[in-house]
Nucleic acid binder design. Structure first.
Lengths: 265, 265
DNA sequence: ATATGTGAAGGGTTTCACAGCC
DNA sequence: GGCTGTGAAACCCTTCACATAT
């Protein structure tokens, strides 16, 4: 609710489908593991198993990058590692700033996966003056007053927001104004950014809620096949079902079963 | 690499498309904010803007749940909050265990979004005896020896893995054996689980790599339209391009441009 | 003999555009 | 007049199955 405009223009970049891009890091990780074990070549079948996808999908994914395999043999591990790294832009290393050094920010700062593959934590930034100068994961925290200066001096184009939701948008605005064009957002807010800025969102509670949805379905099916509102009749805590505005009574409400019997005042 | 079998059977549950399920939490969050501001009704247009999606998509999503809107008026906020909560299974509250109480685990334990909406942190579990008994976010850490007991006693069906990658699979196996059927995995590993167990994965470095991909494309386009390998010619650090196995020379390698000039020994 | 690379088929998701209802 | 609910079109992604190359 600040800069306006929408987010994530579904870039489609050059030819490579977004779904494929999202899997390249998976392949890269599996390949790196093979590389460390000095495995020279790998088939689509083996690599797919290691990455947790099916082999046809993997081959199609690789076909967007070019013909990097050898028929009858498979893929050369080192060569593929290099090609995928290059495609993902990991042959250069990206300076990243992390804003908001609470537990989550500290976890991110210390996360090995950052430093190891193409990313370098250029700065940790926090608004709390008590944090300033304190080293976290070996890097001294800087005060958010200096945010713009840090970003410009280090040429940072990727920012990670790990602040409370309340300040995420304004942090985002400052990052963008200072030149950041990619943002990884851990705050549970929808960020609005200008066109040309990418936002990816990691939301812990959303993931859990999706799990809860499936979990509920499992629970419903194992006892009796159709028992939708049964669960909240049993544990009659939490949310009470409010009536719809003009509840005139006639219209279909809900796919099966109507509004539960318990009603608010 | 323990239990075998694949993961995530793409459940499709009952009628509601997976893509819709994944957005319900977004809508719920936006609706909750409106509810707190005592906004009585909202149009698909407004709500879509708040959730960061387009309005046609939102209406189609809601149509899978039933006809909960009023034509010419919009949606009743309270009523929708209830319906979506129920659909997601958040009218009951789910006990969750978090395994691995490092910085990330601690961040998760203290994350407000857990407690507030349908989830309750039933236990924090860590393998380090030095952690046992220490309160994190007000909850005493328990030792992983008691993992099975904790899960069975509290009837926990959702587990969060925030351990190092090396032990994630064995933690997963123990969780599943003890009765957990949904897992949120923060460790950078592909978990294998039996059918019927859902795994969702949150991977920080993957998200960053996807951003890097798009970032690289932006950088390439702003100066000259076609300059793919230009970036790593400039910063000639990191990965050197290995030659493909049987480099016989004739075949097409890569969509445009060939292997960069710099070669290893 | 074996495993890649890819048209074609199939399924899912998004968007359009408008009928239907308030 | 305004906004929802939804068939139909368009698009994207996955899977199949086999021609193709080593």
């Amino acid at each position: 609710m600040a800069t306006g405009r929408t987010h994530r223009p579904a870039t489609r970049s050059r030819g490579i489908p977004e779904a494929t891009v999202a899997r390249l890091p998976l392949y890269l990780r599996a390949l790196t593991a093979l590389s460390e074990r000095s495995v020279p070549t790998v088939s689509s079948e083996e690599l797919a198993a290691a990455a947790g996808v099916n082999s046809a999908k993997l081959r199609k994914d690789f076909s967007y990058l070019g013909s990097y395999g050898t028929r009858g043999v498979g893929y050369d591990v080192e060569y593929l590692v290099y090609q995928i790294s290059r495609e993902l832009g990991l042959t250069q290393d990206w300076p990243v700033v992390i804003v908001g050094i609470g537990n989550l920010g500290a976890a991110l700062a210390g996360y090995g996966g950052f430093a190891s593959r193409g990313f370098r934590v250029a700065a940790l930034i926090d608004a709390d003056p008590a944090m300033t100068g304190k080293p976290v994961a070996g890097i001294p925290v800087q005060h958010s007053d200096d945010l713009e200066k840090i970003i410009e001096e280090d040429g940072v184009s990727i920012g990670v927001i790990a602040t409370p939701a309340g300040v995420a948008q304004q942090v985002c605005d400052r990052l963008v104004a200072a030149g950041v064009t990619s943002i990884l957002n851990f705050a549970p807010t929808v960020l609005s950014v200008p066109d040309g800025v990418d936002v990816r969102k990691v939301d812990l509670s959303i993931e859990l809620q999706i799990l809860a949805f499936h979990e509920q379905r499992k629970a419903g099916e194992e006892s009796n096949a159709e028992a939708d509102a049964a669960v909240d009749a049993e544990t009659a805590t939490a949310v009470a079902p409010p009536a719809p505005r003009g509840a005139t009574g006639g219209s279909r409400k809900g796919p099966d079963g109507d509004v539960p019997a318990v009603m608010p005042a």
